[in-house]
Amino acid sequence: MSARAEVLARVRRALGRERADPDVIRAEADGLVGELAAIRPPVGDHDAVERFIAKAASERVAATVERLAAADDLPDRVAAYLAERGLASRLAAALPPALAGLDWSGLTLADAIDPNEAVALSWAEAAVAETGSLVVASSPAAPVLFNFLALHHLAVVRADDVVAYLEDAWQRFAHAPLPRALGLVTGTSGTADIEGQNIKGAHGPRYLHIFVVDRF
């Protein structure tokens, strides 16, 4: 007997029954998350974008956030971020079409990421007000490493893409196969493994800077 057949047979023996009806199981499973309102933290009456910004900038998530009225301002604001911190004007950037058309002439953009890259700019498909999380999804235009490797992680999200809850975020991916890597980024790479001291930049980003953009 194959390991697969044997494990499944052991499960059925332990449960003392043969196959159950999938429709019945599905109905039962749906019922278990039917009343989400009672088991989610209240997000409050705030506008979701404001709540997201407050959460992301809170002590626990510790991101810095800038709200931009128009995407046209983005290249200047990225340049300002680098200048204020004395960083070189080169960065690795994974730009979706919505951003690629902007005037980036003041900066050197690399479309591949170096193992010791200082700054990377990436695009978030959505953001979650409940937790202050960015939702990043892999695609040919959005390599995964841009979110996890550089010391400074710069991320762009559209204000219209801010949702209230986690469930609203994955609802957006429900109608196609899930992106190969779907990530919730809620802060930076941190550790408290040595004497409980919180240190940022354990493996990946030490700084997270988020641009929330109202208009494209």
Partner: peptide
């Protein structure tokens, strides 16, 4: 914490 810093869902290879 409300959520850990990185929560990732992976489906399949490249």
């Amino acid at each position: 914490m409300e959520l850990t810093q990185y929560t990732t869902f992976l489906t399949g290879a490249k």
